[in-house]
Structures are given as structure tokens and as C-alpha cells.
Design a protein around this nucleic acid. Structure first.
Lengths: 218, 218
DNA sequence: AAATATTTTTAGGTATGCCTAAAATATTTT
DNA sequence: AAAATATTTTAGGCATACCTAAAAATATTT
């Protein structure tokens, strides 16, 4: 049985591991969790004690297999609850994160699995992130960004990199929703902004926005 | 924003208030929460500080109007989640308490209200306890026990007093379920056990069991 | 109303999880 | 490679929420 704080640290290390081969740094975890490096150091010792991470002083932390399983279980719960909130309780995709942050800590294997069944075994959450299965297996899809496409190419919008409420609302306003096809029509020389085609409308988005949209080539 | 522990104390005081006119005693709260009297004293000071209870040293605690609202909101969430678990996720009525104890602390008014709507505004939880509305209004039904009936009278089973898993499973085994009609046929002189009629079958239950069943006369 | 028993509070201690400031180590720059 | 800079750890504090044991207040018996 882990505390909320322990679970949050494990989750943070998991997410930060994606963008770093070797150990996750104390500072990056502190920043990610809005806490201080000294607090993280304490926690790393404890998690190491519990065999959830490998920790070498001054050299960051890496999840053990047990730690990885633990992280994936929390993430599984988070994403299943997000699906529940959107599909069943009519929440919008920009409203679910904070509530799921609370719900992900509820302890009951049966609850998680029954919820999964009730939702008809969804494979992705409302932001396009994959949902790990009971065994901790997660479907990996290579992450191509809209900004990686060449002029003339078309991509299917499958996920967001930054899932902040502000960005999600921005997409809503422009009717850019998960699953839609986006064609890159033209790129401005001046600011690299992209002219894109979406169904029967055209619009312009900044390069920053374009690099927050995950797509698959079509 | 209250801590889990604060919420649990408030809830405990609410439940214990039912069976006592004046203040709820420190010891009874301690027993109810599986903690020690000294810990409760500390907490009572804090809750008093926050205007959730009126506390006079050596004379127990009473909820203020704010405290009562707070308690009812927690109980509302607890009971709504119990309905969700039974109706939507196929849990049995003896399995839901511990999970609801966790879920009742999730903070999101919108979540509670959307859940309420999703469940089609249930009035009672799976054990027959009434669900408070948003305003903290709770439907009060006078609580008659099966053991209060006279020979020959019939009652409709509407709730349990003791909702321990053991007792609920006992009822399942005997096919005694919420809503069924029970006729008192005969009482043994020796041990006060009751012979009852249930649909087309007859069975015998102890006086202890009978006084755990809430009914309305029919 | 005094003695006894029970309940409640106070005093002082522990573990968790956070903090700041100083010391130790690692990294980068020159 | 030494100096400067950045990162990380240690040391020492604080609040919460628990605990035990002793003291104080209340309730019950005689």
C-alpha cells in the first residue's frame, strides 16, 4: 500500500523517463510535482527502500520492473476514469484531468476491472493516450507531430502532447477534434505557421500548436 | 478544503448524533473511527476552530449547521457511489462499503451532480439508506424493525440497520432482499426467534436478525 | 458527601511529507 | 585543470495525525 505522495512520485518518474535514457533527475521531479528537490530526495530514498526505483545519490532515479508496473496501474486508472467522465458523465475533455488525479488513487482492483468492462475496454483516453491493460502492457504508437508533415501530406489527429485546458479549449473552438483528418496546405516563411485543411474548411495554426498535435500519416 | 481525517470525524459525529440528544462523546467517536480518545480531542479542537462543530471540553461535540451540511454532502457522495457500484459495475451490496469510503472524499461538485443524474436521481442506496440531495435535505422515514411487528402482520423490507458484509451475505443466502414482503407467522417462546413468510417460502430467523431489518407496515 | 470509577484532556513522543539554508558533489566554462 | 556555476543532498524545522501515560474533570457508588 503506497501513499498518495509515493504514487505521485512513481507516476512522475514514469512520465519523465520517456524523455531521458538514464536516471530521472531530482530537480525535474520536483518541478513536475511542484515541490522542492530536498523533498524529492527524501522520497527517492523511501521508494528505493521499497524496491520501486533504483536510486544512486546524485544520479537520479530509474523505475524497477515493480515500479513500472505500479506506475502503469495508476495511469490505467487515471485514463479509465477520464473515459468514464467524458463518455458517461458528459464532461468535456478539458475538465477531466484534476478529477482523474484524485480518482487514480482509489484502491480496488475489482473496481478498475469492472470499470474497464463497463466502458467496453477502451484503448485510449479522451486525449488520445493509450490505456495500459491489467498486465501493464501499453500499446505504443510512434509519435508523429503535425509539424513533421510535409506540404501536401495528410494526417489523422490521434492525440495531444500538451493537454492543458487552454490548449484543449483552443482546439474545441477551431473544431479540431480527435480522429479528424488534417491536410497541410502551406507553410508561411515568416513565422512557420501552417495553413491546414480540415473537412471543408481551411485555417491557420501556429507552429507551436502544430507541434502539440500527434498524428498518423494517412 | 478538509482533510480525509477531518471529513471522517465529521461523518462519525453525524452518525453518532442520531442516537443521542446532546453532545457526541469523545470516546464514542474514537471507538467509531478506530482511533484513541486523545486523538479525537485534538481533532475536535480543530473542527471547532473551523466552525464545523460546537465543542465544550468534557461535554462532547455537536455539529453546527455548516457541519451538518458537510456531513450530508459526504454521505450523499458515499451513497451515490454505492448505487453506481451496484447498478452499473455489478458489485454486490456487501462489497461496496470500503470502496465508497474512499470515493466519498473525491472533491468535485460537478462530478457528484453528474453522477446523480447518470444514476437517474436515486433516492436510496443499495442498503435502503436515503440519499441526501444537493441542498443537504434527507428524506426521513420512521424506522420500524421487523421485531416490532405483531404476529400476523406483514412488513415491506426497506433497509438494514447493521450493514456488515456478514449480515448482508446471510440475507442473500436466505433470499431476503430489499423490497420483499415479510409476514410474521409465529414467535418461539424459548428464544424469541421468528417464523416468517417470504413469497411462497417460510423460514426462521433469530430475534437479533429481525431487529436488524427495517420495514414499513403494509 | 466522600470514595471510587470512568471519561476526557494534557503532555510529550513518533512518522510522514513538506519546507529553507548550508554543505557536498557534479557539470560547465574558461 | 582550476574556477565558476548548477544540481543534489544533508541538517534542522514545521504541521498533521496518530500514539501512550499521567493528570484533571466528571459520573457513579456507597
Amino acid at each position: 500500500m503506497l501513499t498518495f505522495s509515493e504514487e505521485n512520485h512513481i507516476k512522475s518518474i514514469f512520465h519523465l523517463s520517456a524523455s531521458s535514457q538514464d536516471g530521472v533527475s531530482t530537480n525535474s521531479i520536483a518541478e513536475n510535482l511542484n515541490t522542492k528537490a530536498s523533498s524529492v530526495t527524501e522520497m527517492l530514498k523511501k521508494l528505493s527502500e521499497k524496491s520501486l526505483i533504483v536510486y544512486k545519490k546524485y544520479h537520479g532515479a530509474q523505475l524497477t520492473e515493480l515500479g513500472r508496473k505500479t506506475a502503469l496501474n495508476i495511469i490505467r486508472k487515471h485514463r479509465l476514469w477520464e473515459v468514464f467522465l467524458v463518455e458517461k458523465l458528459n464532461f468535456k475533455w478539458d475538465e477531466v484531468h484534476d478529477i482523474a488525479e484524485q480518482l487514480e488513487h482509489i484502491q480496488s482492483e475489482k473496481l478498475t476491472n469492472q470499470l474497464d468492462k463497463f466502458l467496453d475496454f477502451p484503448t485510449h483516453d479522451p486525449h488520445g493516450d493509450p490505456i495500459p491493460n491489467t498486465a501493464g502492457f501499453i500499446k505504443f504508437t510512434p509519435k508523429l507531430k503535425l509539424s513533421d508533415l510535409n506540404i501536401g501530406e495528410t494526417g489523422k489527429f490521434i492525440g495531444v502532447k500538451d493537454s492543458s485546458s487552454t490548449f484543449l479549449k483552443y482546439l474545441d473552438k477551431r473544431k479540431i477534434s480527435l480522429g479528424c483528418n488534417i491536410k497541410v496546405l502551406h507553410q508561411e516563411d515568416f513565422d512557420q505557421s501552417l495553413h491546414i485543411g480540415l473537412d471543408d474548411t481551411n485555417l491557420t495554426i501556429s507552429i507551436k500548436s502544430a507541434s502539440n498535435l500527434y498524428i498518423t500519416k494517412i
